[in-house]
């Protein structure tokens, strides 16, 4: 079974952490992964930094710029991740923008991921119709789950189309915003989380964007399988470095 599905099958709310590879220091990537794992993180999203991350707010834009200045590249990331499976058995997902994958070669990218033991891919700007026609078989052949996004504005029809594309989880964007934007969840957000849960999709649901502490974590995971935390974690790394990792994960529980 793919590690993502194994994690989703557990009877607990999953903590999934996004971080930018090569940040704060170029060689921090694997150390961040190890410390996150040791601190009880359930899923890790490894962000491949991009020069023009359209779906990201200022925090992830800055960490991406810094990582690129540090010398991070697609090749470098794959090098760093070589052998990571000797240390870590939780699901690892690569998140990036499609142009980086396209320039590396989509097939080569998938192969590298498979060799390393990556379980899934999130590419916010790879549209589902193009994914389905051009890349679905390729991803499946390399054992990679494609994690699609939905937002509060996604129609029920389209949600069903998206649900049919995969069999792991759907990334529910908490509100119509770029990453890091939300200030706590109100009734509207909660009813959106519930509405989706009530649809009984094939895929499990994970909520991301705007989750930053125990309260927002509890709200966003009430009806779903768990949450994805990005900007708040990057801010912790910026402030306290890698030593802040265990405390941050603890603070979500």
């Amino acid at each position: 079974m793919n590690r993502i599905n194994r994690a989703l099958a557990q009877d607990k709310k999953l903590i999934s952490i996004y971080f930018t590879a090569g940040y704060p220091q170029l060689e921090d990537t694997t150390e961040v992964i190890k410390r996150l794992t040791d601190s009880g993180t359930d899923v890790i999203e490894i962000g491949l930094p991009y020069s023009d991350p359209l779906a990201d707010g200022p925090v992830i834009q800055k960490s991406s710029e810094q990582a690129l200045r540090n010398g991070m590249s697609t090749k470098k990331l794959f090098q760093q991740l070589e052998g990571i499976r000797d240390h870590v058995d939780i699901p690892l997902i690569v998140m990036g923008y499609f142009n980086a994958m396209l320039q590396f070669g989509v097939e080569d990218f998938c192969k590298e991921c498979e060799v390393i033991g990556i379980d899934g891919i999130i590419m916010p700007d790879l549209p589902i119709d193009i994914f389905e026609v051009d890349y679905k078989e390729l991803f499946e052949a390399h054992g990679l789950k494609f994690i699609p996004l939905i937002t509060p504005e996604t129609s029920a029809n389209r949600i069903n189309t998206i649900d049919a594309l995969g069999d792991s989880f759907v990334y529910m964007v908490s509100s119509s915003s770029t990453t890091g934007g939300q200030q706590g969840f109100g009734d509207e957000a909660l009813s959106y989380f519930k509405r989706l849960a009530d649809m009984q999709l094939t895929n499990k649901l994970m909520v991301g964007f705007g989750i930053k502490d125990a309260l927002s974590f509890e709200q966003a995971s009430r009806y779903t399988s768990g949450c994805i935390i990005g900007s708040a974690f990057i801010q912790t790394l910026t402030k306290t470095g890698l030593d802040g990792i265990p405390g941050f994960i603890q603070s979500l529980k």
Binding site: A55, F98, P124, D125, L149, T151, R158
Partner: peptide, 11 residues
């Protein structure tokens, strides 16, 4: 051409 946009922009 095409529309390589995040789902967030789709609507």
């Amino acid at each position: 051409g095409g529309a390589y946009i995040p789902e967030l922009l789709y609507p």
